[in-house]
């Protein structure tokens, strides 16, 4: 099948590649760019394991064609850590609050939470739960993911993180 040339900015670097028009963005990211942190869990836009940040929005890269991302700015999980390579507040929050188990949903979840905290820097528990409802987790029951995001919000805002009483 004839291939199309695409260019985009991924995690701050210009990238390019040849793709079929039907190539999914997630496959371009995983196969062409070898950024395998973005996962595939359902291929039907339900699970959110493939969530990336595309031009300031959380999108599920399993239902975007690579050609649709032409010229766009993309952040994947590999672009979330601090510039010095240390864990970002969110990554640290997930570890401190035990917000992950098998780790398969985690990249999508963190990338989504990253955008959520930009949209709403001080979300309530309800807003967090609603804000991550497009990302499924089979291991944690979400409770600790909510705490992880609260932890990160507090850290980013320079406020004190208080764990809600059980």
């Amino acid at each position: 099948m004839a291939k199309t040339h695409v260019t985009m900015r991924v995690n701050g670097s210009e990238v390019e590649g040849l793709v079929e028009p039907r190539t999914l963005l997630v496959h371009f990211i995983r196969e062409n760019l070898a950024l395998t942190g973005t996962h595939i869990g359902c291929e039907t836009t339900h699970c959110g394991a493939c969530t990336v940040d595309l031009d300031g929005m959380s999108v599920k890269s399993c239902t975007v064609f690579a050609v649709q991302a032409e010229g766009s700015e993309i952040t994947t999980i590999e672009g979330i850590a601090n510039a010095d390579g240390t864990l970002s507040a969110l990554q640290e929050g997930f570890r401190q609050m035990h917000g992950l188990q098998c780790g398969f949903c985690t990249p999508g979840m963190i990338v989504r939470a990253h955008r959520l905290l930009k949209e709403n820097p001080t979300p309530s528990e309800e807003e967090i739960r609603f804000g991550i409802a497009g990302n499924l987790c089979r291991c944690t029951g979400y409770q600790n993911i909510v705490k992880a995001i609260q932890y990160a919000a507090a850290k980013i805002n320079g406020t004190e993180f208080r764990e809600a009483a059980e």
Binding site: G37, E78, I80, E92, F94, L100, G103, P107
Partner: peptide, 12 residues
């Protein structure tokens, strides 16, 4: 485990 999983560095 979380050090690699939170950075998308797991190996599935």
């Amino acid at each position: 485990e979380d050090i690699r999983f939170t950075q998308g560095k797991g190996n599935y």
